[in-house]
Amino acid sequence: MAGRLTVGDSSLLRRINAAVTLRTLRGGRPVTLTQLVGDTGLSRPTVEGVVEGLIESGLVAEVDHTPAKAPPGTRQRGRPARWFRFRAEAGHVLGIEIGVHGIRVVVADLTGQLLGTAARRVDEALDADERLGAVRAIVAEILRGTGVARDSLWAVAVGSPGIVDREGTIRLGTAMPGWTGLDLGARLRRSFRCPVIIENDANLAAIAEHWQGAAVGKGDVVFVMAGLSPGAGSLINGKLHRGFGGAAGEIGALHLLGQEAAPERLLSTTGKPLDPLDEAAVARVLRLAREGDEVARVAMDRFLRRLVHDVAALVLALDPELVVVGGWAAGLDGVLEPLREQLALYCLRAPEVALAALGEEVVAMGALRVALDHVEEQLFAVDPPGAGAR
């Protein structure tokens, strides 16, 4: 009969009602049943049934919400209101950065409330097995320190340098030994009973700055990871642009088009390639430039011109509203103004330029946001609440 719900339709409607109610509850503050009815637009019996189901699933709890003391002689009319809250502690998410010189892990509850962070320096010469062993050790350390059970993890996201495909394999990763061709997703999934998402570090930094940093409220954003070989992450209308094979934003390879000098020559103050070419060596050259060393200043100018050319190529292609500069260059005096001036010369419309706001935690925080996004897709899907989120 036309207009009558089938069994399947009825089940779908219940799941939609549950998702609507859960989204309202997830705001953080306890609410009454009456407030839920008003906020969701659902009938009271429907909300009552949905809430009972969410309590059974462990995602919602009824709370004692005693009102302020009433004046003497007054009576409470009717039954007291029932109050409910979303159980953010029902699950947890991890954000991990695997870098050349360090590993950083952050853990949060299901609302994104940060519960703890941990970081460890590592030798850049570590092979893949040793580096992954260090990751597992620091994860165990932060879980112990925060009292978070491994079984309560609903999603883990990981940031890494290099070109990362959608399955989590590092297609090209020259920054760390044994990284190219590594199936990072498969290796790390052995350590967790939840989904593990792998993403490029600059992409995650762009997501983090859009979430809580310098790019909040901006739609089209480029984040520049101004390292030895600069990379970039791009958001278009607030959504990450990865490219077909995950290689979007690899601006550090642009100099190869003209066979121009590599970074170790650009930053050299001796006429010989900078050796070792690492962040400490670069920081030394830039510090000398700030202190007035003329040879170092010329080297810094060469490197900044290259960075500007790389960024300008991306700006011309994407026309972003904002360029955010992060990585080791983020704390250096004089980085922003040359970028602004040169982009104005090279680009048809110069974007805003700002320093990253999240500092050393930017990649790990972007990973945390990706893990939360995965959980939210499960929580607010039309599947039963909690199903598939583990």
Score class of each variant (00 low, 15 high):
M365R: 15
R77K: 15
G227Q: 05
N200R: 06
R306W: 12
T40D: 06
V164L: 09
W154D: 03
R265G: 00
K218E: 06
A108N: 05
R171W: 11
G213V: 04
V363G: 01
I138R: 03
P177Y: 00
V362N: 02
A389R: 08
I138C: 03
P338A: 00
L274V: 07
A248N: 10
A367F: 07
I163W: 02
E337P: 12
C194P: 14
D220M: 09
G181E: 04
L343W: 09
I103E: 01
A18E: 10
G49M: 02
K272W: 12
A330G: 00
N17H: 15
D220V: 10
G271E: 14
P72G: 11
L257Y: 15
A261T: 06
S10P: 01
T46N: 06
C194W: 04
Q76T: 14
G213R: 01
G233N: 01
I197E: 01
V216Y: 08
P273T: 05
D301I: 07
D373R: 06
L286A: 06
D151F: 09
V63C: 02
Q76S: 14
G49P: 03
A202R: 05
P338W: 13
E56D: 12
I103K: 02
L316I: 15
L172M: 06
G185W: 09
V375H: 07
R242T: 08
G366N: 07
H241E: 10
A387G: 08
A155F: 00
G53Y: 04
L343M: 12
P273V: 03
V47I: 13
A248C: 12
E141K: 13
R190P: 08
P195S: 01
V20S: 00
G258F: 06
D333I: 04
P276D: 03
S10R: 13
R349F: 07
P385D: 06
L143A: 10
L368E: 02
S10V: 07
V282K: 07
P230E: 11
K239H: 08
V100M: 05
I96A: 03
A296R: 11
Y346P: 05
A215V: 07
V324H: 04
N203M: 07
L318Q: 04
R87S: 10
L153H: 02
Q378N: 05
K272A: 15
D183S: 12
V37G: 02
E141H: 14
G238C: 08
D127N: 15
F223L: 14
D373K: 02
R23Q: 08
R284N: 13
T21V: 15
L204I: 00
G331Y: 13
R193V: 08
L184Y: 07
R287Q: 15
L256E: 13
P161W: 03
F86M: 10
T21G: 00
V156S: 05
